[in-house]
Measured scan of single mutants.
Amino acid sequence: GATAVSEWTEYKTADGKTYYYNNRTLESTFEKPQELK
């Protein structure tokens, strides 16, 4: 079976905060997504 690849990509803001962006739902969040835990 195919492994589900996380759609979340980790980015940093200009002031160094980490956030996560989902390229399928176009959602962004500062909290670590469930799929990455």
Rank of each mutant, 00 (worst) to 15 (best):
G1D: 12
G1V: 14
G1T: 13
G1S: 14
G1N: 14
G1L: 14
G1M: 14
G1P: 13
G1H: 15
G1W: 14
G1E: 14
A2I: 14
A2M: 13
A2L: 13
A2Y: 11
A2W: 10
A2S: 12
A2R: 08
A2N: 14
A2K: 09
A2D: 13
A2E: 12
A2T: 13
A2H: 12
T3I: 12
T3A: 14
T3Y: 05
T3N: 14
T3L: 13
T3C: 13
T3R: 08
T3V: 14
T3H: 12
T3E: 13
T3D: 14
T3Q: 13
A4T: 13
A4N: 13
A4P: 12
A4E: 12
A4V: 14
A4L: 13
V5P: 11
V5M: 13
V5W: 14
V5D: 12
V5Y: 12
V5T: 13
V5K: 09
V5I: 13
V5R: 07
V5F: 13
V5G: 12
V5N: 11
S6F: 08
S6R: 09
S6Q: 11
S6D: 10
S6P: 11
S6E: 10
S6A: 12
S6K: 08
S6V: 09
E7D: 12
E7I: 07
E7A: 07
E7R: 04
E7M: 06
E7Y: 08
W8F: 01
W8R: 00
W8Q: 00
W8E: 00
W8A: 00
W8Y: 02
W8G: 00
W8S: 01
W8V: 01
W8L: 00
T9N: 07
T9E: 10
T9L: 08
T9D: 04
T9Y: 08
T9S: 12
T9M: 12
T9A: 11
T9P: 00
T9K: 09
T9V: 15
E10L: 06
E10W: 07
E10I: 11
E10V: 10
E10C: 13
E10P: 04
E10R: 04
E10N: 02
E10A: 09
E10S: 05
Y11V: 10
Y11D: 03
Y11K: 15
Y11Q: 09
Y11F: 12
Y11A: 07
Y11H: 14
Y11W: 08
Y11G: 06
K12R: 14
K12I: 11
K12G: 02
K12S: 05
K12E: 05
K12W: 06
K12M: 10
K12L: 10
K12F: 07
T13N: 09
T13F: 03
T13P: 01
T13H: 04
T13M: 07
T13V: 02
T13I: 03
T13W: 03
T13S: 07
A14M: 09
A14V: 11
A14D: 09
A14I: 11
A14T: 09
A14R: 08
A14Q: 09
A14Y: 03
A14L: 10
D15R: 03
D15F: 05
D15M: 04
D15S: 09
D15N: 07
D15E: 11
D15V: 03
D15I: 03
D15K: 04
D15P: 01
D15T: 06
G16M: 02
G16S: 02
G16W: 01
G16L: 02
G16Y: 01
G16T: 00
K17T: 11
K17Y: 08
K17G: 04
K17F: 08
K17V: 12
K17M: 08
K17H: 07
K17S: 06
K17W: 05
K17E: 09
K17A: 07
K17D: 05
K17P: 01
K17R: 15
T18L: 09
T18Q: 04
T18N: 03
T18M: 05
T18I: 12
T18W: 05
Y19K: 04
Y19D: 00
Y19P: 00
Y19M: 10
Y19W: 11
Y19I: 11
Y19R: 04
Y19A: 09
Y19Q: 03
Y19V: 10
Y20I: 00
Y20G: 00
Y20L: 00
Y20H: 00
Y20K: 00
Y20F: 06
Y20T: 00
Y20Q: 00
Y20P: 01
Y21W: 10
Y21G: 01
Y21L: 08
Y21M: 08
Y21P: 00
Y21F: 15
Y21N: 02
Y21K: 07
Y21S: 03
Y21V: 14
N22Y: 01
N22G: 00
N22W: 01
N22I: 01
N22T: 00
N22Q: 01
N22L: 00
N22A: 01
N23G: 05
N23H: 14
N23M: 11
N23R: 11
N23T: 13
N23A: 11
N23P: 06
N23E: 10
N23D: 06
N23V: 10
R24N: 08
R24L: 13
R24H: 08
T25K: 01
T25P: 01
T25H: 01
T25I: 01
T25M: 01
T25W: 02
L26M: 15
L26A: 13
L26T: 09
L26F: 15
L26R: 13
L26H: 15
L26W: 07
L26V: 02
L26K: 15
L26D: 09
E27G: 03
E27Q: 11
E27K: 07
E27V: 10
E27Y: 04
E27L: 07
E27P: 00
E27D: 04
E27F: 04
E27T: 07
S28H: 10
S28Y: 15
S28R: 12
S28W: 15
S28D: 03
S28I: 15
S28F: 15
S28K: 14
S28N: 05
S28P: 03
S28M: 15
T29E: 02
T29P: 01
T29F: 05
T29M: 05
T29A: 04
T29W: 04
T29I: 05
F30H: 06
F30N: 06
F30A: 05
F30K: 04
F30R: 04
F30S: 08
F30P: 04
F30G: 04
F30D: 07
E31P: 02
E31Y: 05
E31F: 07
E31W: 05
E31K: 06
E31I: 14
E31V: 12
E31L: 09
E31R: 06
E31N: 09
K32W: 03
K32H: 04
K32P: 08
K32I: 10
K32E: 07
K32N: 05
P33N: 02
P33E: 01
P33R: 02
P33T: 01
P33M: 02
P33H: 02
P33K: 02
P33V: 03
Q34P: 14
Q34M: 11
Q34V: 13
Q34T: 12
Q34G: 11
Q34K: 11
Q34S: 14
Q34C: 15
Q34H: 11
Q34A: 15
E35P: 06
E35N: 09
E35Q: 09
E35K: 04
E35W: 05
E35R: 04
E35D: 11
E35L: 06
E35A: 14
L36F: 13
L36T: 06
L36D: 07
L36V: 07
L36R: 04
L36Y: 12
L36H: 08
L36E: 06
L36Q: 05
L36W: 09
L36G: 06
L36P: 04
K37D: 12
K37Q: 15
K37A: 15
K37E: 13
K37M: 15
K37V: 15
